[in-house]
Design a protein around this nucleic acid. Sequence first.
DNA 1: AAAATTTGTTCTATTTTAGTTCTATTTTTT
DNA 2: AAAAAATAGAACTAAAATAGAACAAATTTT
Lengths: 217, 217
Amino acid sequence: MLTEKQYNLLMFINKINKETGRCPSFDEMKEAVGLKSKSGIHALINALEERNFIRRLKHRARALEVIRLPRFKPQAIVEEEKKREQALQNSVVSIPLYGKIAAGLPIEAIADETETVSVPFEMVSLGQYYALKIEGDSMIEAGILDGDTAIIRKQNQADDGKIVVALIDNNEATLKVLKKNGDTVKLVPCNKDYKTRTIEASRVKIQGVLSGILRKY
Amino acid sequence: MLTEKQYNLLMFINKINKETGRCPSFDEMKEAVGLKSKSGIHALINALEERNFIRRLKHRARALEVIRLPRFKPQAIVEEEKKREQALQNSVVSIPLYGKIAAGLPIEAIADETETVSVPFEMVSLGQYYALKIEGDSMIEAGILDGDTAIIRKQNQADDGKIVVALIDNNEATLKVLKKNGDTVKLVPCNKDYKTRTIEASRVKIQGVLSGILRKY
DNA sequence: AAAATTTGTTCTATTTTAGTTCTATTTTTT
DNA sequence: AAAAAATAGAACTAAAATAGAACAAATTTT
């Protein structure tokens, strides 16, 4: 029925009409639709008039009105809108921010999800995620600084060498590199001023794996 | 539909009509619309009549009536819609990703905005932003790793000590700490394996200031 | 009913804004 | 490759906005 440009123009005129009761000029329309010449608008207007979507007084300034709206949107518009909607929904994910992990609380026990962080969807995939504010510099050599926001993917176990949130003795949560070693695990900081801790595997619960970092300067 | 002046006049007539039941004279209208001559009103009245918004008895004083008003949405609804749209747009911002800076190209010259990154709106404020993929480890001690995505705020100058995108001799763009020193600037890497470069200020153009880091594991 | 007063009409003229038309390209479609 | 549609730009024409004044018709007052 209508081309994309025709549709856009019609909707623009209708919008201005409804919102202000006034009528845009050809130049204003040209801006709105993204043309650089009025002659294009002229053609579009003629097309819209021919198709009975608008009525106008020729040679009169700002003298046209919408008489009906199309029942169907042009395919291009539909697809455009779908894309945009998807982009919007996909582009960002809101995940809970568990500031400092309350000493000893397993992640599951932290019910408070009032604070959240928006994360670009590129940074998460399937699974559950949460965020932590990094405190201290024990991971500084891994490029994780005090104040950074760590994006963590919830997992109960993790591959060797990953940076994980580990809960020790149900009592203490920390972000460290995980090194498995038979019955024991090593929690390796990334800062030579800190010591690696070696602990029986049974005393350590993995709470998640580091999946991203957000930093704001 | 209507021009500004036509619209204003119509609304004025309608208002007087409703409030007093009477009809304003040309002189009253002239005052209300801000004209200095009645002839202008005459023209406007003709236009409104031609467009079927008013009906009148010619040569009769104060003898015109409004037959319709341009229909428009209540302001409240318009604002509501605007807000909603803004809210949607606010949650995430899409900024262009200038992969590796093409050697020697000032940021402005990189027209390609096809690749973009979604950034949580918390990470940007006013101004223009773009993103860069970090290559190399010259800033590793600042917690900026190879592969990180740097969020840069476009600026032509920057405070001392900031991490900036600097273009040297219109030829080479790099991310370094800026140290101003009279006529020269130092571009300080954050890695002891790299040397600080001291360059005449005139040869260095600031292309932006580091405003955030995104990292994905 | 006549006079006085309002009110609307018309004309001239100028500046600004807006719409039309035409030509030439570019892009898209067939 | 040809045809059709979209686009740009400029030149041109028309209308809107504006003012001011003279005049005519309606209304009100006396």
